[in-house]
């Protein structure tokens, strides 16, 4: 996994975000076993307590679960994964719309732009919502 961190947010919340994205996009498959906290911390170059905190939060949200002896796993509940996927998509749309509104485009115009974009770059675009 490729980890990237920005300076202006806590590391643990960035780990949570990236894990959510990986689970929603299927990079981490449902039911997949996660590696140990220590291994994941070393890979991300972060403090093990930070990784532990991030995983605890994902566990609280139900996206991962732990089994007492064998470690942590990605949830198998596909409805929950789908829910997460939708939430992330909504966030993307929200920030996109905000940027476009700042540029002075109305919702109507934005729809036209997207349509035009799809026609141009449709071959590699997959913008179905």
């Amino acid at each position: 996994m490729e980890w990237q961190f920005v300076d202006n947010a806590p590391i643990y919340s960035q780990i949570v975000q990236q894990m959510r994205l990986n689970i929603a996009s299927g990079v981490l498959a449902p039911g997949e076993r996660l590696r140990s906290v220590r291994d994941m911390a070393v890979e991300a170059g972060v403090n093990p307590n930070t990784m532990q905190r991030a995983l605890a939060e994902l566990e609280r949200d139900g996206l991962v679960y732990s089994q007492r002896t064998s470690g942590r796993y990605v949830t198998e509940e596909t409805s929950m994964i789908e829910e997460t996927r939708k939430t992330i998509a909504k966030d993307y749309v929200k920030s996109f719309m905000e940027s476009m509104n700042r540029l002075g485009y109305s919702s109507r115009e934005i729809a036209d732009i997207i349509e035009a974009f799809e026609k141009e770059d449709g071959a590699h675009g997959n913008l179905k919502m």
């Binding site: 300076d7 202006n8 947010a9 806590p10 590391i11 643990y12 403090n47 930070t50 905190r53």
Partner: peptide, 13 residues
Amino acid sequence: VDDIRENNGKSVD
């Protein structure tokens, strides 16, 4: 470190 980033919105550096 988490608190610094959370409360100040910037890195420790």
